[in-house]
Design a binder for these strands. Structure first.
Lengths: 175, 175
DNA sequence: CACTAAAAAGTAGATGTCTAAGTTTTTCGG
DNA sequence: CCGAAAAACTTAGACATCTACTTTTTAGTG
């Protein structure tokens, strides 16, 4: 690097300071996912299945569309995930009343039973994560995250109005 | 739901309180990614490419292994990403000195030039996100996130010692 | 009451990530 | 200094997600 093509990295360092919150949030999300996934896997449940189970434990019998919206996933993704969950015996899918379009998902006994085993895992991960933070810090953290989410969701909406769109996003890198 | 199979959701509500921080962090990470991705896409760069560019702007000439470690991605992922970046003319890859194993990545003029266009986008997203938070809240947020990351990384290490492993994790759901 | 538009589900194909296995080069103990 | 182990990269294959499109059903309106 001591040749003619040397570049200053000073400015980049500054930018890194600016970008630090986004990076910390991504790392924290990644850690949460990894710690929870380890535990879910040992119970034979994938992270995606956990997402839908969690919604169904609150609101059994939702339609596929409602489930995909609440999970922030697309309908094809929900479709294949729920299909798999039916194969595994966690749910049954059926149409309700005389509406022949909507496909509703209902927890089976097996699906309900998972709740007692899985929810403590999520509680455990949260408790672990928050160890060393006092109540006031936790309160600020919650508020700050809510503000950030609100700000950025407005940004996405504004950008959409200007014609910008979020790309395929296949998957979120583990950053 | 007014039949014999009615289930109480009271307990689930409690658990949701417990789980709230993880959920907020995932949503915040998702929003950050989406807002940045929108902007990167309009400049013809993917999120994955941004990750590697950001590292290279700091430390040009790293090996593929070093890059994959810093990006928290596997070597095959780094391999294909860097291959594509070479095709696009952002970098060149070559071996250095008399080590015939390591493949190093070097930014081209084009790769360096992207910095001026892309870094302001990240700064913009961060400023937008933090709008409405004062300095003390930002400080607490940083500290809290660092504590959470440290706690959970220790958890993962401890769990590994007990034989638990993080599963394939193909991709992080947009939760 | 028929016809079009909207809603919901499903299918097909692309992509980025991962694990597992293979190849080449380097390191190092006997 | 030779052969096994480790290091670094590469290839192959699996999978969850996405977009775009198709199909079926419902709703709305002249």
């Amino acid at each position: 690097m001591a040749d003619g093509t040397t570049r200053s990295t000073d400015r980049t360092e500054e930018i890194y300071e600016e970008e630090r919150i986004a990076r910390l949030i991504r790392l924290a999300a990644r850690s949460f996912n990894r710690s929870l996934q380890m535990r879910l896997t040992s119970e034979g449940v994938t992270f995606g299945q956990w997402i839908f189970l969690r919604i169904l434990w609150r609101s059994d019998g939702l339609s596929q569309r409602e489930l995909s919206e609440r999970a922030h996933l697309t309908e094809p993704t929900a479709h294949t995930a729920l299909q798999r969950m039916e194969e595994l015996g966690f749910i049954t899918r059926r149409k309700v009343g005389n509406n022949k379009r909507r496909q509703h998902a209902f927890l089976t006994e097996k699906g309900w039973a998972l709740r007692d085993r899985l929810e403590p895992l999520a509680v455990e991960v949260n408790d672990l994560a928050l160890d060393g933070l006092d109540e006031s810090e936790e309160t600020v953290l919650r508020r700050a995250l809510s503000v950030i989410i609100r700000n950025l969701e407005r940004d996405e909406k504004d950008a959409a109005a200007r014609g910008l769109r979020v790309p395929a996003t296949r998957s979120l890198p583990n950053i």
